[in-house]
Write a protein that binds this DNA or RNA. Structure first.
Length: 415
RNA sequence: GGACAGUUGGCCGAGUGGUCGAAGGCGCUCGCCUGGAACGCGAGUAUGGGGCAACCCAUCGAGGGUUCGAAUCCCUCAUUGUCCA
């Protein structure tokens, strides 16, 4: 959630920044008006309630002294009606404000380039030079089927489209990658955590998936949701807590399955395992002191990029433009891996600094001296496991369709 | 699934209708004491919101109700423990 105090104090600036993110000026003005309306309603209620409380105290005195209370009770009863009305006004103002505020995205950092969509993202750097093929490289689904690694049809049989089944090396490689990634991250001081893969609505509100993106989530009959990313349970570990300054930063890594309806992606990446309803991902999450978040962001980007380098996978870093930036992010670096079969770079990791945006929603604070302040939260994939498999298949393929395994994974596969 | 018992501040723990945002203890902070420390003594020590401030509002697992007034009574839910199936 954006800082409503800042909105009041520096309306022009906040408005300008949010408009870069596509929020209309009218909506921002409305947010300010609703915030002011709530403040007014609160003050009205509190004044009446203070009177009510004072009279109630008097009541005790009257009773003790055996005085006649009928006149006092009449006054109190009269005020009570007003209090009830004021509460209702405040409740409505609160609801109206929250509904609006929760649907407003984070302000993009000044460093975020303007742009419509992914075509306007700015390349920061390339790492490793893609290999030259002396044959036409195949796409991963062909290789996956040829090697018997992935069975797409049986995935559909068991569930529906966008599900797949791993067999043999297809299954083993997945597990090897997960272990490799977790070990790699742990060596860089990201502590491993194992978290629930179903969460409640509060957790999803905390990280920003709810209320706006409910359509993309699988929901159970008990009101729990399957997580779309480990970012949700890991970040919310500290929901509604006040951390000690010396406990920061909290750097964590977690492996989970991720579940997404991909509601807005009809027709995109329908073949292969680029865009599945269920996929595996190793995630990095950091909870930091505000002064430290940019430094740790760089660490996270380096961690994911170095992991790809260790896997010998060519990739590039791009700075997301305003149009491609996620709801909660102040700025994001995507890492795109080279896919020779598709002859293009595709996203394999996305690292974001949300600054206070999630911390304010999830009420994650720390003691800064005497004062409680919001932490900064960051998250990033390192890496999406399925897409890493895709990248390995396409980059390590031989002319006969066999696939080599990156050296760094050999110990994990007993080769 | 059923029965019973819990859920109070950083922690432990008292509190069954008003002076309770909450005794007492531990911990922590500051001061005194000391060559320095321990001990001892004194003061302070929840969170959010509003106000320059005095101060005001809210919060005792969550939500609702009774009442002029609820940590305390009633209802629902969550959760923990123990026992039963």
């Amino acid at each position: 959630m954006i800082d409503l105090k800042l909105l009041q104090k520096d309306f022009e600036n906040v408005s300008k920044k949010l408009q870069r993110k596509g929020v209309s000026a009218e909506l921002i003005a409305e947010l300010k008006a609703k915030n002011e309306a709530l403040k007014e309603a609160k003050q009205a209620y509190e004044t009446l309630q203070a009177a009510q409380n004072a009279m109630s105290k008097e009541f005790g005195v009257y009773k003790r002294e055996g005085k006649d209370i009928s006149e006092l009770k009449a006054r109190v009863d009269e005020n009570k009606v007003k209090v009830a009305q004021a509460i209702e006004v405040q409740r409505q103002a609160q609801e109206a404000l929250e509904e609006l505020a929760m649907a407003i995205p984070n302000m993009p950092d000044d460093s975020v380039p303007d742009g419509e969509d992914e075509d306007d993202n700015v390349e920061l750097k390339k790492v490793l030079i893609p290999r030259e093929f002396d044959f036409t490289p195949k796409e991963h689904w062909e290789l996956a089927e040829q090697n018997g690694w992935i069975d797409f049809e049986r995935g559909v049989k068991l569930a529906t489209s966008r599900f797949s089944v791993g067999f043999g090396m297809g299954a083993r490689l997945e597990r090897a990658l997960i272990n490799f990634m977790l070990d790699f991250n742990r060596e860089r001081d990201f502590a491993e955590v194992s978290v629930p893969q179903l969460v409640n609505a509060d957790a999803l509100k905390g990280t920003g998936q709810l209320p706006k993106f409910e359509d993309d989530l699988y929901k159970t009959q008990d009101g729990l949701y399957l997580i779309p990313t480990a970012e949700v349970p890991v970040t919310n570990l500290y929901q509604d807590e006040i951390l000690k300054a010396e406990d920061l930063p909290q750097k964590m890594t977690a492996y989970t399955s991720c579940f997404r309806k991909e509601a807005g992606a009809a027709g995109r990446d329908t073949r292969g395992m680029i865009r599945q309803h269920q996929f595996h991902k190793v995630e990095l999450v950091a909870i930091t002191h505000p002064d430290e978040s940019e430094k740790i962001f760089d660490e996270m980007v380096a961690c994911a990029s170095d992991m790809l380098t260790a896997l010998e996978l060519p990739h590039r870093l791009v700075n997301l433009c305003t149009g491609d930036l996620g709801f909660g992010a102040a700025y994001t670096t995507d890492i795109e891996v080279w896919l020779p079969g598709q002859n293009t770079y595709r996203e394999i990791s996305s690292i974001s600094n949300t600054r206070e945006f999630q911390a304010r929603r999830a009420k994650i604070r720390f003691k800064n001296g005497k004062k409680n302040e919001f932490v900064h939260t960051l998250n990033g994939s390192s890496l999406a496991v399925g897409r890493t498999m895709v990248a390995i298949m396409e980059n390590f393929q031989n002319e006969d369709g066999t696939i080599d395994i990156p050296k760094v994974l050999h110990p994990y596969l007993g080769i």
